[in-house]
């Protein structure tokens, strides 16, 4: 007979209880996360491959894809540079007001996406503060690509900085001081020492930033004006098709975004795995 040690009983659950809890958790996840994901792909391919391909190769869809890529290509690098600068200033120096700065960087996370769009309308829209000046100079920001970029940069503002700050805080500044003491310049120190130390964290932040930049809906919806072929991003195109009862088309474009999400998750998992390796080697 198998001996049951008393400590296994009292410091963990019985195998039956474990299986029950695991099953409950998995059922919840299957129902709330897995099922919607499956629904996207299955609805997209409901009528076979041909309508799916038609929907994603339609000129409006292609222009939405192009615009989404352009938006991400502009807003992600901007926030990457900001994230690097902010985390360098915050983690390598001590100055009063640091906590306030950290809170302000996080601000966009606590603002509704719709409000994020609204503030740019209030600033640059026809009725906005700078609206008259802009129209006098023939500049258009709201209901145009610049507005979409601004709203996206706002929404994704904290992503890179938030990944880098805890990482660089933990790494301290010994490595940089060592490099400087060996005669390296500031840029050499940054390129050869700091950047390699944070590359995975940076990539991770960029990945999350990119996913959000490509998928943002609320803020972009408010500033875009939904002009087909001009200011329609992929998520907005999904909405239009859906509201026109073109469900296959909507889900076809949605499935591209879902695939992007899956790729993001896979890369994220791989990076987390690499992170573990690194912290293991360090300590």
């Amino acid at each position: 007979m198998k001996r049951q040690s008393p400590s296994t009983e009292s410091s963990t659950e019985s195998r039956t209880a474990q299986i029950l809890l695991i099953a409950l958790a998995l059922a919840f996840l299957a129902f709330f996360l897995m099922l919607p994901l499956i629904a996207v792909f299955s609805e997209a391919l409901k009528q076979g491959l041909a309508p799916f391909l038609d929907a994603v190769s339609n000129p409006d869809a292609l222009s939405a894809i192009r615009l989404t890529l352009i938006i991400a290509a502009i807003s992600v690098p901007l926030n990457m540079v900001f994230g690097l600068a902010a985390s360098w200033a915050i983690t390598k120096f001590s100055f009063p007001g640091k906590n306030l700065l950290l809170t302000l960087i996080d601000l966009p996370f606590s603002v509704s996406p719709v409000v994020s769009g609204l503030i740019f309308v209030l600033l640059f829209g026809a009725q906005g503060l700078l609206g008259p000046w802009l129209s006098a100079h023939g500049l258009k920001i709201i209901f145009a690509v610049p507005g979409i970029i601004l709203a996206t940069v706002f929404i994704t503002f904290p992503f890179v900085a938030r990944e880098l700050i805890p990482l660089m805080m933990e790494q301290g500044k010994d490595d940089e001081e060592a490099a400087l003491s060996l005669g390296a310049s500031g840029w050499q120190t940054f390129w050869h020492v700091t950047l390699p130390n944070i590359r995975w964290g940076l990539l991770y932040g960029v990945l999350l930033c990119n996913a959000r930049a490509m998928g943002e809906f609320g803020a972009v919806s408010v500033v875009s004006g939904h002009i087909r072929g001009e200011t329609n991003t992929m998520p907005l195109h999904v909405e239009i098709l859906y509201n026109e009862y073109d469900f296959v088309g909507a889900f076809a474009v949605a499935s591209l975004l879902a695939a992007l999400a899956l790729v993001t998750l896979v890369l994220k998992t791989v990076l987390e795995w690499r992170f573990d390796l690194h912290s293991g080697a360090r300590h």
Binding site: D175, A178, S181, L182, A184, H192, V193, N197, R282
Partner: peptide, 28 residues
């Protein structure tokens, strides 16, 4: 510090962990 020509050995060594030992030594 970079121009004082001092060698500094840090308590936790501060070795550049993405570089080989030889590259670490050659860094300066």
């Amino acid at each position: 510090v970079g121009k004082r020509n001092v060698g500094f050995v840090f308590q936790q060594y501060a070795l550049f962990r993405h570089m080989t030992v030889a590259d670490n030594i050659a860094f300066g």
